[in-house]
């Protein structure tokens, strides 16, 4: 495969042609904030709005999950404008997230916590109003619970369930602020044909899908459990 050379944060790297900047950076040990990126997905979801980077010669910040690498490209992952957008997106997510880390099964393996320390954002950010959902928690499955109120709508569980395993129990419903990951007709997951493969729990970056026995999912799972690409 053809490779191209580019610079990310001053580090000269080579990446396969057509690869997105986000993966090129992650493969070379440069972390770019992200929640919704799935390496194996046919097209980037581009929903979390965290992975902004600045590219020389470009007008404004671009999402690195959608931007293919190019020869001679100079990328800055820590530019002030891209960081400002990432912080705003993270604060928006936190303002609609019930922050109760001490009682959350995901405490200390939660990607929101990791992003907060990386971007210098307080978990209890006060810039925006607290707007949380109050939806019922689904504990119908024997080994895991689903708390839609904690969900950040990254789509990883939906993709894994549908595209990777072809089950399709989970999907999105409603629009705007009411958008939610749910099952067909909002039935409990256990009654929706779930095969309890636990893959959705493994990929959930936050405390929305957690094991009942306190087991932790794979931490830092931006790669979404890809057999070929664990770095």
């Amino acid at each position: 495969m053809k490779t191209v050379s580019l610079t990310i944060d001053g580090k000269a790297i080579k990446a396969p042609e057509g690869q997105k900047v986000l993966w090129a950076a992650l493969d070379n040990g440069i972390y770019i904030p992200n929640l919704c990126a799935i390496r194996k997905a046919s097209e980037p979801y581009a929903g979390c709005r965290l992975c902004f980077v600045e590219i020389e010669g470009r007008n404004g910040p671009v999402t690195s999950c959608t931007e293919p690498v190019a020869e001679g490209m100079v990328v800055n992952t820590q530019g002030p404008r891209s960081r400002r957008l990432a912080r705003t997106a993270l604060e928006l997510l936190l303002a609609s997230h019930p922050v109760d880390c001490a009682h959350c099964a995901k405490n200390r393996s939660c990607e929101l916590q990791k992003l907060c320390s990386l971007l210098g954002v307080k978990l209890n950010t006060r810039r925006f109003r607290k707007l949380v959902h109050n939806l019922p928690i689904d504990s119908s499955c024997p080994n895991f619970t689903y708390n839609p109120n904690k969900c950040v709508l990254c789509s990883r569980c939906v993709w894994t369930c549908r595209e990777r395993y072809g089950v399709g129990v989970l999907g999105f419903a409603h629009r705007g602020f009411d958008r939610v990951v749910t099952t067909f007709e909002d039935k409990p997951i256990a009654e929706s044909g779930c095969r309890v493969c636990d893959e959705c729990i493994e990929v959930c970056p936050v405390g929305a899908l957690v094991f009942k026995d306190g087991r932790k999912g794979t931490p830092g799972c931006a790669e979404v459990k890809s057999k070929t690409a664990t770095s």
Binding site: Y45, A46, G47, C48, R49, L50, L85, T88, A89, L92, L93, A95, S96, F128, R129, L131, V152, L153, F172, H174, R175, G176, F177, D178, R179
Partner: peptide, 22 residues
């Protein structure tokens, strides 16, 4: 706009909602 937002991306889904609440 916040009602018509599809809800896919964080900025529009939550950003317009926050702006509206202000």
């Amino acid at each position: 706009t916040q009602r018509e937002s599809c809800g896919k991306c964080t900025m529009c889904r939550l950003g317009t909602r926050q702006m509206l609440s202000m």
